[in-house]
Design a protein around this nucleic acid. Structure first.
Lengths: 216, 216
DNA sequence: TTGCTACTTGATTGAGCGCTCAACATACTG
DNA sequence: CAGTATGTTGAGCGCTCAATCAAGTAGCAA
């Protein structure tokens, strides 16, 4: 593994753990075991390193995020919640300290360089695209007139908002509440017109519901 | 208006516009027309000034945020969307540059001091409390078994996530998509069990729907 | 007048920041 | 071997940052 990759790796981890602004070049150099000259040989500015990190996130959406989340899950709607489950697990693993790295950077930089802003937007778009495809694959389980891209965006706002609240409260309750409501919404969208079941509202998903779709 | 108040005012505005970390003490001093000695006479550290700002936000939820948003609107569910409308207007007014100041600070500080974290949490809680009360007031228009606090939390995650995406895209579409889906969810929750109307999904709220509840 | 409290002044401090650069190491090529 | 391309080294530069402090002012009470 060469110096350039070690630098991106270290920056990726530190930007996630400490944020972009709070991570110093010295932090990255130490974590990567490199000298400042080497870093600036590859990345003229700190921002160029950030761009490389964001590019790696974009490239990693499918292999690093979606593939592991969706392993053994074929039901397209369960895939949506499996992805949300990955972010929940991230909160669990870090005791609600770190959430979505893209969301953090997006709110941390108030007037980001246009290039950075576009990379952030590309990351969000890639996420929404993937969910959008699930919702298309769900076919007529969802209302025909439903704006499926809007619903995919809604899933992302639920995740990002839920992560924000759970990180602030150091407690999963907010994330679970938000995702639980999204589950209920999906349940109502899937409901055949003639048989609405109003008693599902706000309940945590049942164990059977969570397992549905796994291991085709 | 004394120096202390001018400092809090200036900090409040600058933290919103530039973020906490990117705002220097010098910025605040200039905006407030004060000297560093005066600032440190009232606030031993920059963080103490942040805490004062967060306290002011907490105290301002009712008089500065909810009261203007709800003027002339009595319908409790329309109040939820009137509040979301305020944040939309903030995005419009700033060309999608600045969103929710609390959300920004919450994600900007990765490992905040416990006091700061609690003030941020208090801000979120105050917001959720207010919506929660609206949902209680909505009575049996919503399913009896619905977890109304979870739904209030869901409204906040929708707003925060929507603001995040719209700021990143410099475009209201994401915010409108998320809030539009939340509207549809509310419509389905309000729907009498015997008459679901699947053709509302994902549509922008109608003009009449938006006006409903105004001017009791 | 004296003394006390409340607040203001702004030059200054030292730490830390992103970043530079001249010198050097290594490996491949003609 | 010399020549060139591709990295690597780390001391150190200029600057900004949050924070300090000795000296000063204003108001008020005894």
């Amino acid at each position: 593994m060469n110096t350039q990759e070690r630098l991106i790796d270290a920056a990726m981890r530190l930007f996630w753990e400490k944020g972009y602004l709070s991570t110093s070049i010295a932090d990255i150099l130490q974590a990567a075991g490199a000298n400042s000259g080497s870093l600036y040989y590859f990345f003229p500015t700190k921002q160029d390193l950030l761009i490389a990190v964001l590019d790696r996130y974009i490239a990693g959406i499918n292999p690093m995020l979606l593939a592991p989340a969706w392993e053994g899950i074929d039901d397209p709607i369960e895939r949506v919640f499996a992805l949300l489950g990955r972010y929940r697990q991230m909160l669990v693993d870090t005791e609600c300290f770190y959430g979505c790295p893209i969301g953090s950077i997006a709110l941390e930089l108030h007037e980001p360089d246009p290039v950075v802003r576009e990379k952030l937007a590309n990351n969000f778009d890639g996420w929404v695209d993937a969910i959008h495809e699930c919702l298309i694959e769900a076919g007529d389980r969802l209302p025909r007139e439903l704006d499926r891209r809007a619903l995919a965006t809604f899933a992302l706002t639920t995740m990002e908002g839920g992560v924000m609240l759970s990180r602030t409260h150091r407690n999963l309750a907010s994330y679970d509440a938000a995702v639980g409501m999204l589950r209920d919404y999906f349940a109502r969208l899937e409901m055949p017109r003639s048989a609405p079941a109003s008693n599902r509202a706000g309940r945590a998903p049942s164990r059977s519901a969570r397992k549905r779709g796994r291991k085709k």
